[in-house]
Amino acid sequence: MKHVALLDYGSGNLRSAQRALEHVGATVTVTADPAIVLEADGLLVPGVGAYAACMKGLREVYGDRMIGQRLAGGRPVMGICVGMQILFDRGVEHGEQAQGTGQWPGVVEELQAAVLPHMGWNTIEVGEGSEMFAGIEDERMYFVHSYGVRRWEFEGDELTTPPLVSWAKHEDDRFVAAVENGALWATQFHPEKSGDAGAQLLRNWVETL
């Protein structure tokens, strides 16, 4: 049975994420203890609320360092919702900029839509060859957000395989819905709130650990 550390940094619906992971067969420890975080088979980083507040909480428990240490050793990390957004360079909310962890270049900004937040079930434009969406390529996922990454800025080269990006649209605005980048996976939507399809996605992740 795989052990997942669920990072507790004051942001995120920890209980629903814990239940969802346990449902697909993982053992879960809710913690900010670096020893547990670094030794676990996988690290799940949740996130709900404002970008700047999430980054403040993450830095207070040295979560940004722990994410970096795990990834430097090829140890799996998955971010959900704002837990995905903080993996990018920066976020802009109400004109205020906050620095993210910088795992990927890009800016989290307000979606260009008449109705916000984007809340409810939506389809995904799944990237070809996705492991994350294996068996659920045509399923809908549950979103609750007003901000997202509207432009993907990471360019691969002959030495670097670019991440696999999946997209979604709210009204006419297209944004990053999920990223698969070696040991680092992330979703803008909430798999823990996405029923059987979300459970299968989490199962797919746990099986890679």
Rank of each mutant, 00 (worst) to 15 (best):
M1I: 12
M1L: 11
H3G: 05
H3C: 02
V4H: 06
D8Q: 11
G10E: 11
G12L: 04
L14I: 09
S16T: 15
A17Q: 07
Q18V: 00
Q18K: 14
Q18F: 01
A20H: 05
A20I: 04
H23T: 14
H23E: 13
G25N: 09
G25V: 05
G25R: 01
T27I: 02
T29W: 00
V30S: 06
T31W: 00
T31Y: 05
A32Y: 09
A32P: 04
D33T: 12
A35V: 12
I36Q: 15
E39T: 13
E39C: 00
E39G: 07
A40L: 06
D41F: 04
D41P: 05
L44K: 08
P46N: 03
V48L: 10
A50V: 10
A50C: 03
A53F: 05
A53P: 08
C54A: 14
L58A: 05
R59I: 10
R59Y: 09
E60W: 03
V61M: 12
V61G: 10
M66T: 02
I67V: 15
Q69H: 15
Q69C: 12
Q69R: 15
L71V: 14
L71T: 03
L71N: 03
G73K: 14
G74H: 13
M78P: 04
G79W: 01
G79R: 07
I80T: 05
G83L: 02
Q85D: 00
Q85P: 02
I86G: 00
F88H: 02
F88C: 00
F88W: 01
D89G: 05
V92S: 12
E93T: 03
H94Y: 11
G95A: 10
Q97I: 14
Q99S: 13
Q99R: 10
G102L: 13
G102M: 12
V108C: 14
E109Q: 15
E110A: 14
P117I: 11
P117S: 09
H118S: 11
N122K: 07
N122G: 13
T123C: 12
T123S: 14
T123P: 06
I124W: 10
E125Y: 01
E128H: 04
A134Q: 13
A134S: 13
G135A: 10
I136E: 06
I136C: 13
E137G: 00
M141W: 05
Y142Q: 12
F143L: 09
F143G: 02
Y147S: 05
G148P: 02
G148A: 14
R151P: 00
R151S: 13
E155N: 03
E155T: 14
D157P: 06
E158W: 07
E158K: 15
T160H: 15
P162D: 05
P163N: 06
L164R: 15
V165D: 10
S166T: 10
A168G: 09
K169I: 03
K169M: 15
D172C: 04
F175E: 03
F175A: 08
F175V: 03
V179R: 02
E180R: 02
N181G: 08
N181R: 06
G182P: 07
A183D: 08
W185C: 04
A186Q: 01
T187C: 09
H190I: 11
P191A: 08
P191Q: 13
P191G: 05
E192M: 00
E192A: 04
K193T: 03
S194K: 11
G195A: 11
A197V: 04
A197S: 12
G198Y: 03
L202I: 06
R203S: 07
T208I: 01
